[in-house]
Amino acid sequence: MDFQRKLILHWACQGAIKQSDTQEALNISGALPQAHQWPLFLATLLLWLGALAVTISILFFFAFNWNDMSRFTKFGLLEAGVFGCAALYWFIGSEHFLSKLALTIGSILVGVLLAFYGQTYQTGADPWQLFAYWGLLIIPWALLARFATLWFLIIVLINTALQLYFEAYGQLLGLGDRPDEDVFWIALLFNGTCWLAWEAASTKFTWLNERWAPRLLAIATAAPLTAMFIMVIIESIGFPVLTVILYLAMITLGFTVYQKRIPDLFMLAGFCLSVISTIASVVIAEVLEHVDEIIGFLGMTIFLISMAAFAANWLKKMHQEQSS
């Protein structure tokens, strides 16, 4: 529908469809909702909104009375919530979207329950343990639900656990001599692994075939790797050889895979931004200090515009190839 809409509007702008006929053309193509579709849409919209409002009102109500409730009441409420979501999944059936949503909400409530448990009994557990156990406990549900959002939630939880562990102990798996860089390494190694695993798994499990997840994982991997690469160039710190190898491998593989194998313009645009950032940083660090200030500013302006123009032209060409 989005494709037809864009095409028809493009033809109308070109004059191939009269302005007065545009809406009719859109109606015929099915790009716009028909009259009989509106009641269902509005009923669904109001249903979701009403359910959300009632749910949040319940949360607000409990938040207001929280201090006055006994701890067993609080535990009971949370456990009832977890159980209720599981029961809802069982009643509705595994293939329905609502049942997957119910398990996701239940998974979130598991975390709330763990947090409340730690707060009530003062077990002395570290914050990282909460997120780690939370992530591990909901894995069986993620396997059952076959829902991409739930798996992404687990990745976020493990990410958080790793970061908190590193903050608490200052080292992880032998890393730790340079805390400023090692926190990037942790994010890079874990998210990079998840990214590769997700792309590989999505070829086998179609329910994982949602582009938003690997895109977010790519950002979580490429951003720290780009930052480290720039730090290696500017300050010559870190593990220069390993960083350079990993960065070049990411760029090379990324451009190859997302151009031919798994066409994804978003990824290509991200890699372009990364390459522009690194080259610009090299130029600023290595060239600008040796030239006059005015020439330096002028040079950087022209350089950045040229890089952006080159990247934009190439991406437009890729977009045309992928659209045709």
Partner: peptide, 29 residues
């Protein structure tokens, strides 16, 4: 509803993330 020949296909509406990338570098420059 149409008149004339079908316009030649060219890249329609560059995706927002490409525009965003270009915009960010434009700001930088």
């Amino acid at each position: 509803l149409t008149s004339g020949d079908m316009p030649i296909n060219k890249a329609l509406d560059t995706p927002w993330y490409v525009q965003l990338m270009v915009g960010l570098v434009a700001w930088w420059s």
